[in-house]
Amino acid sequence: MALVSAAFGAVFFTFTRARYKSIAQISDQIDLVLHNADYLYISESEEGELSILQSEITKMTLRIREQNEALKKEKSHLAESLADIAHQLRTPLTSANLILSLLKNNPVEQERKALLRETEELFIQMEWLIASLLKLSRLDAGIVVFRIGPVDVESLIDASLRPFLISMELHDIQVRTDVPAGTVVSGDSGWLSEAVQNILKNCIEGAGDNGRIEIGCSDTPLYMEITLRDSGKGIEKEDLPHLFDRFYRGKNSDASGYGIGLALCKTIITRQGGTVTARSHPQGVALFTIRFPK
């Protein structure tokens, strides 16, 4: 019995010592992972509980690395976005300050009124830019709760066109709609109207004076589709892949706008399960397509 006990004691001591040694090695490996960004712990091929633990540590390490990389990219994107926002706001502010200095030294009443109108337009643009950036930030933060329900497409188009009626009348832009009565899509009517308005704004700028905008709708067994087409020159081939990117203003340095509207439009629609695309029609016009799958 003494010999058997001694043998078991020796085996237990050897086994326990080996386990403690393995645990100490794992502890050292974890310390290296924590203090060396380039080090990655790979578990050994031995079977047993410690091997499972080593494997889980490796998975956890990879997951943490992925999250850190994602945070670095998000931080970099945030820094770039803040720089872009500052640049976008600085442009109209600089113009407004210049106009105010001209107003101060200009005694001609008619010219002063013209400068005041330009200043008002700049502040309206800044107000729209700030409001759009706030909407984008709310969507990015995930604090927007969409009130999903049936939305009548005809009413949606009418509500989206309403803010532009005066502008279209001044520029003699004709709008033709072909939306079957009773066509319904599932979504948040207020946010969908915001999305369509941003596309309409782009179409109005593209159509120019004496232009045309055509709005159509088709209902298929797979999806409901809304199309918006203007009579402008179309979209440059180089701009198409980046048209919905945030702060993208086109390869033409004289392009108007801030590169916010279409990015906001895409975010709103995709968050509600839809898709939005743009292409140049063979006739040269710009064609935007919104689809909601059934």
Score class of each variant (00 low, 15 high):
Ser76Thr: 10
Ser76Glu: 13
His77Met: 05
Leu78Trp: 06
Ala79Met: 05
Ala79Lys: 09
Ser81Met: 09
Leu82Met: 14
Leu82Glu: 06
Ala83Trp: 03
Ala83Cys: 02
Ala83Asp: 10
Ile85Arg: 02
Ala86Cys: 01
Ala86Glu: 13
Thr91Ser: 04
Pro92Gln: 06
Leu93Trp: 01
Leu93Asn: 09
Leu93Pro: 00
Asn97Thr: 07
Ile99Cys: 01
Ile99Asp: 08
Leu100Gly: 04
Leu103Gln: 07
Leu103His: 06
Lys104Trp: 06
Pro107Gln: 04
Val108Ala: 13
Val108Leu: 11
Glu109Asn: 05
Gln110His: 09
Glu111Lys: 14
Glu111Val: 14
Ala114Ile: 10
Ala114Gln: 14
Glu118Ile: 01
Glu120Val: 12
Glu120Asn: 07
Gln125Glu: 15
Met126Arg: 00
Leu129Ile: 13
Leu129Val: 09
Ser132Asp: 15
Leu133His: 10
Leu134Ala: 06
Leu134Val: 02
Arg138Leu: 08
Leu139Val: 03
Ala141Lys: 13
Gly142Asp: 08
Pro150Phe: 07
Val151Ala: 07
Asp152Ile: 05
Val153Pro: 02
Val153Phe: 07
Glu154His: 11
Leu156His: 05
Asp158Val: 10
Asp158Leu: 07
Ser160Trp: 05
Met168Val: 04
Glu169Gln: 13
Leu170Cys: 00
Asp172Thr: 12
Gln174Glu: 15
Gln174Ser: 13
Val175Pro: 02
Arg176Pro: 00
Pro180Gln: 08
Pro180Lys: 08
Pro180Ile: 06
Ala181Gly: 06
Gly182Lys: 04
Thr183Cys: 10
Thr183Val: 08
Val184Ile: 15
Val185Gln: 04
Val185Ala: 11
Ser186Ile: 08
Gly187Tyr: 10
Ser189Thr: 07
Gly190Ile: 02
Trp191Val: 00
